[in-house]
Design a binder for these strands. Structure first.
Lengths: 129, 129
DNA sequence: GCGTAACGTTACGTTAACGTAAAGGTAACG
DNA sequence: CGTTACCTTTACGTTAACGTAACGTTACGC
């Protein structure tokens, strides 16, 4: 259940380069165990990488993601900590929904444009025949 | 209806720096008219800037946006052109909806996390009193 | 014992999207 | 006429997120 993977196995599974994984580690997004000098990635590391990649696809910076991960981790501590965490998370959530709304807008625009283009194309082709 | 704005007026209206506007021009995203050497931004330029900023907020690169704008412009030409344009636009649309779906996922995750955090915080505070 | 495959660290290179001086033109104001 | 405000171009600096050598070290098959 909790097998560990080498760096190249990780790269294959997640379609990332070793450089990227080492980079994420350098930036404190991952902290794989070591067997000697060699990195070993646990299930927890894999879960974190999933979140990292998802965050990236959503347009978040690695620093943003680092903070989010720290939150996820850190929620067990004291009351003030937790309150602060929730605050930050709330802000982030607002950002994300705002971004999604904008995306929806842009999508709608583009769909209209495409529809119109398609009509125009149909007319052109009809006229041609 | 078609007043033109100076660069600083544009900057104020859109909350961007002059450097950014000149940069966008350099990258062929804008092409304001000139009165001597001075830039004059028309309604069309303002519309384009709106799209540029929206694109940015959605996580598109300036190069992506340049292509989209070129499409919007260029749709009046011949059949092959239009067909190609529609193809590219379709791809882009797929990308955008995919990104929105991921965002929705991430949002849902974060909401759950926040809800749990809030409960925990409530318990902490209840226990404290 | 030797090649080579997979891992490691160090460090310089690259692209995007501007920021930030440096240096100069022009137009109105006092 | 000087200065202040706003504009211009040119050009080097900066940050993020890696890419890409260059070079050293185990571990393994032969």
């Amino acid at each position: 259940m909790s097998e560990t993977l080498t760096i190249s196995q990780m790269c294959e599974q997640f379609s990332v380069t070793p450089r990227a994984l080492r980079f994420y580690e350098d930036k404190e997004l991952l902290e794989p165990a070591r067997k000697g000098t060699q990195r070993l990635y646990s299930a927890r590391d894999r879960a974190r990488l999933t979140l990292i990649l998802r965050g990236k696809r959503c347009g978040f910076s690695l620093e943003d993601i680092r903070q989010l991960l720290a939150m996820y981790d850190h929620s067990g501590s004291n009351e003030a900590q937790l309150a602060r965490t929730l605050e930050v998370a709330g802000d982030r959530l607002a950002q994300m929904t705002a971004q999604r709304d904008e995306l929806s807008l842009a999508i709608a625009d583009l769909q209209i444009e495409i529809t119109q283009g398609a009509e125009k194309l149909a007319q052109l082709r009809a006229g041609k025949v």
